[in-house]
Nucleic acid binder design. Structure first.
Lengths: 224, 224
DNA sequence: ACAATAGTGTCTCTTAGACAATATCGA
DNA sequence: TCGATATTGTCTAAGAGACACTATTGT
């Protein structure tokens, strides 16, 4: 029986100009050397405790980013997706703020909009699409999008992030009411978003108890 | 680099006496020979087109069941879960009616309640728990539970299945109203559930267009 | 007729969205 | 003061649950 090639790939997503972007890197080796592709690599059985560990290691090594949110996405497999042979790729997706990308990402990391992506090697396009679909789906009923923002943020900004991810407007009153009920963010007393010619927005942060886990919403966000 | 062991495992779930059961088989080979375990096996790179294909093949070969619903669950991995070495198991879960089990399952298939399971080898307990959690979660907002029933069923029966899976009562009026809106089942004209000392229930079937895909509910089922 | 469960009508309560009033900043 | 955006109050509409009534079977 031919051995199976085992790799991990990571879809690192961020928001720039209210558009979802994915982090890509130029491949140094064959196959597809020189092509922009997802950060990925082989599982290292001597050092990785599991594939999540491998994904964390690969992401840090290739992009310089240590993501607070890294979730297993799906496993892609088959004889044709990799020219080297029958392969399995356990894929993960991560969310990060644009600010962290700017501060910590290796200079060769390239951001590309997730819409209209093309020319990706392997089945990386399908992987990115699955990651975006998962993010969209989870965003309708969880606090997931806060990971696309920096430590502190205003509610209008958070709402804009939800709207950008979901691709539709959200009723302002409902949004704030829901955020209130969810009790997942707390105001940073005395901190405001200043500098603009209008009433400054209160800055919030994710509550400590939600930093590790997601907050789940029983009723989805609706358009409005 | 040591090679990674690549397998698939399948959690086949069914409902018996309104309790979720999982199909287990006694292992014929080491490791854990003689122990009840999930049906699983190696990926066959010569014949499997992908891991979904492998899961379908393994399930049919080991249990005799060809499930209409088979979804990728999660990939489990690590150096310790299998004594043979660093391994990756791509897991799937399937739903089937008790009637199909009775008709088609190999005689050595054993059903066990998913609650209070113990003594499973590898990390099979964690895999079963993940499958049950996924089923519960998806059942709150989709037509998934219909796969636990036979071809035709009454609405009260379908409601009982939802209640068994979700573990809480559902308001009868709301349930029927929602089923009506969803438009995913249709009455079988002239077919009733007979034999009991009460008004016979209309029999329904899943509409053709939902046999391949799930019907998604925008608002979750609520207790009541 | 009675017991038992199927199926429906309807009232009330909760929740979401529309609309608009008020608050607070820089220019 | 004006323009702009934050924040809040409140009315209205839609959806969910409670309750009870009608329907239909076997005994």
């Amino acid at each position: 029986m031919t051995p199976v090639i085992c790799t991990v790939d990571v879809v690192l997503l961020t928001l720039r100009d209210d558009q979802l972007h994915v982090a890509l890197l130029r491949r140094e080796r064959e196959p597809f050397a020189g092509t922009l592709a997802l950060p990925g690599g082989y599982i290292h059985t001597e050092e990785d405790r599991d594939t999540q560990d491998a994904a964390t290691r690969v992401l840090l090594a290739k992009t310089g980013i240590r993501s607070p949110y890294l979730e297993q996405l799906q496993t892609f497999s088959g004889p044709a997706r990799d020219p080297r042979g029958w392969s399995v790729s356990v894929t993960y997706y991560a969310l990060i703020s644009e600010e962290v990308i700017a501060r910590a990402a290796h200079p060769d990391v390239q951001l590309r909009t997730v819409d209209g992506l093309k020319g990706l090697p392997f089945d990386h396009l399908a992987i990115v699409e699955a990651a975006v679909a998962r993010l969209r789906s989870k965003s309708t009923y969880s606090s997931l999008p806060v990971y696309l923002l920096d430590e502190s943020f205003s509610l209008p900004r958070l709402q804009a992030v939800y709207e950008a991810v979901l691709g539709e407007p959200i009723n302002k009153v409902s949004f704030r009411r829901k955020m209130n009920e969810l009790d997942m963010v707390e105001p940073i007393v005395g901190a405001f978003e200043e500098g603009k010619a209008n009433r400054p927005a209160q800055l919030y942060r994710l509550k400590q108890e939600f930093k590790a886990s997601l907050s789940l919403i029983d009723r989805a966000f609706n358009a409005g």
